[in-house]
Design a protein around this nucleic acid. Sequence first.
DNA 1: GTACATACAGTTTTT
DNA 2: CTGTATGTAC
Length: 715
Amino acid sequence: MTPAYLAGLNPEQLAAVTAPRGSTLILAGAGSGKTRVLTTRIAHLIHTGQAPARAILAVTFTNKAAKEMATRLQAMTPIRIGGMWIGTFHGLCHRLLRAHAPEAGLPALFQIMDGADQLAAIKRLLKTLGVDDARYPAKEVQHFINSAKESGLRAGSVDGAQPFERRLAELFAAYDEQCAREGLVDFPELLLRAHELLTRNEILRAHYAARFAHILVDEFQDTNRLQYQWLRLLASGGASVFAVGDDDQSIYAFRGAYTGNMREFQRDFSIQGVIKLEQNYRSQGNILDAANALIRHNTGRLGKELWTGRGPGAPIIVHAASSDQDEAAFIAQAVAGLAAEGVPLSDIAVLYRSNAQSRALEHALFNAAVPYRVYGGLRFFERQEIKHALAYLRLIANPQDDGALERVINFPPRGIGARTLAQLADTAQQHGIALSEALTRGPGTGKGGAALAQFARTLAEMRAACQAAMLPQQVEHVLRLSGLSAHYAASRSEADRLENLAELVNAAAAFVEEYTATTDPALPPVGLPPLTAFLSHASLEAGEHQAEGAAQALSLSTAHAAKGLEFHTVFLSGLEEGLFPHEHSLNDRGGVEEERRLLYVAITRAKERLFLSYAQNRMLHGQVRYGIASRFLSELPGELLAHDGPRRGAPDPRAPRERAPSSPWHVGQNVAHPKFGTGIIIDCEGRGPDARVQVNFGAGGVKWLVLEYANLSPA
DNA sequence: GTACATACAGTTTTT
DNA sequence: CTGTATGTAC
C-alpha cells in the first residue's frame, strides 16, 4: 500500500522522494514542488525506517527556508523531528562550533559578527595599523578576507606573490589576530572553522560522518566552494547526499556561489542519473514558454524545460513607457485595475533590477493610493538603535569586545570624543588589554578622564544589574542605564526607535521562551548563557525584512529578493539595456548569463499575469538616461507578447491594442536590412501603410523603420 | 567635541 | 537625485 504522504506526487517527484541509497542530484525547476520533495523525502526516510531522525541533516541557505522545511515536515510526520539537524550552513556550523569550541580553538563564549560588524572591525584595525585607507579601502579588505575564507584559505596560504596581495594577506592575518583577541567570529569564519575542525579532528569527523547517513541540500546551485567541501567532509562516511538545485536559477555568483559544484558533485559522488523536476505547478503556459525561450540563450546548462498541464493563459504584456515616471504610472494604474477586478494586492508584485528604481514606483503608487511595501530595507537587528543596544549587551557578555565598546562609548553622547578614545586605546595597547579593561585601569589624563570614569561606572552598574537577571530584564537594564531609552525618548522624530527598543525586550522574551524549550537546531544549543545565545541569534538571524505598510499591500522587490516567492501577477520594470542586463554585468565573464537567469527567476514568479515594461528616458543619478529595450525582450517569442502603451502617433494610448498576428512581422523575429544588416524586431506599432517596427541591429544600433519603405526581409 | 558643509559615489545580498 | 564620508568652523 502506498503511504498517504506519497499520494499526489508526479512520477519524477516520486522517483526523487524514493531514490535508493546513494547520492542523488535533483534538478528542480522553478515551481516544481522542490520543498515538497525535500520534506517528503525526509518523511519517507523516517517512515520506511531507512534512517532515524538523528541520522538526518538538512541544510538550506536562509533561516526562512529552514523554518519552512521544519514546519512542513512536522505537519507531515508525527515523529519528533528533534534529533534532526535542520538549518542554514551558518547555523549548523555555529552549532558544531558551540558544541566543540575548545577543539575548534575558540573561547566558549565567542560572539558572531555580522557583515557590518566585520566591516567596522576592519576599519578599526586599519586605523590602529595606520594603513593608507585610499590604497586599502576597508570594503576591499573585507572582500579579500571573505573570499579567501570562502575558498578555504587562511592568511598564510593565500597567494602573496604580488606586494599588494602580500600586504592584504598581512592585514588578513592581523584581522584574524584581532578577532581571536576579542573572541569574535565572522560569518565565513563559522564555515571555515567548522571545516577545519572536521578536517583536523578525525574523531569528530568520524563521529559526525557516521551519524548523518542522509544529508539533504537545498538550493545547491548557491553553494560556494567551502560549503561544498564541508558537505564532502560530512559525507565522508558514505552518507547519501540528496542535493536539490537549479543551475538556471543561480543568481548569486557575485557573492561566491559556484554552480560548478553541481558538476563536481556528479563526479565526486558518482551520480548515475539526474532526476529532473520539470512539471511546473505555478505558472500558466505563456509565462513558462517565455521563461524557457529566454533561458535557452544560455550556454552550458544542465538542461531542463518547464511545462505545465494548465492552459497558455493571458498574453504577456509588454509596455514601452516614455519615462520612468510614465512606467511607474502605468504600473500603478494597472495594479489599481487588477485590484478592482478582485486580485488581492498581496498577490501582486512589482520587481526591478536595482533598489533605486523603487523611488519612482513608490511615488506613483502613493499618488494612486495603492498600498505597498518595499522589501529589502533594514532588518530588525540591523537597525541603528538595536545595534547600539546589542553593543552594550555584547560588552556585558564579553568585555574583550573592543568593537562593541567603541560603538557605544559615546552613544548616547557623553563627551568622549576621538581624542579621549585614542588615549584609552593607547593605554589598552600598552598593557595589552581590552578597551573596557583599560577603562577601569586608570581614567587617564585631561578632561576626558572624568567622562571616562563616569562611563566606567555606568558599565559597572550595568554589569551588576545584569548579574542575576533574566535576559529580558538584562535588556531592560541596559536600555535604561545606558541612557539609550532616555536619549530616544527625548526626540520626537525618533519615537519609532524607542518602539523598536521596546520590541527588543519582547524579542528577548520570545527568544528565552523558545530557547529554554527548544529542539530547534537553528537556535544555539542549550547550555550557553541566554545572553550569549541571544546575541548569536541576533547576528545569525537578522529578522524579517521589516516591510512597512498594511498586510493588504502590493509588494515591491528586487528580482533577487523575490526568489522563491510567487504572485498572481508580476510586473517587471526597467527592462532596458544597461539596467537589465545591468551595465556592470557586461564586463564580468558570464555576467550577461547571470542577468538572464535573474530575469528567468523573475518571470517564473508569475502565476497568471506578467507585465514587462521599459522606459525610454530614465532618471538615474540625477541625470536623464536614454534607454533602449533590453536584449532579453527580443529573446522572448513574439507570439507570447502583446504590446501596449503610449506610442508615437497613437491617438489614444488606452485604445484597443493592435495584435501581432495580423502582421507578418512580430517582435523577436530576425530580419535583414540591406544597409543595417541583420537584426531582431523588438517592437511593432501601427498597421497598414504606417506600420513601423523597431529593430535592434546589435552593433548597428536600434532603429525605427517604416515597413513600406524599409526593404526588410526575414532572416 | 560637536555641528555643519562640501565632496563623492551610486547592482544584486544571505549568513 | 540621494545618502554617506570626510573635512572645517564653532
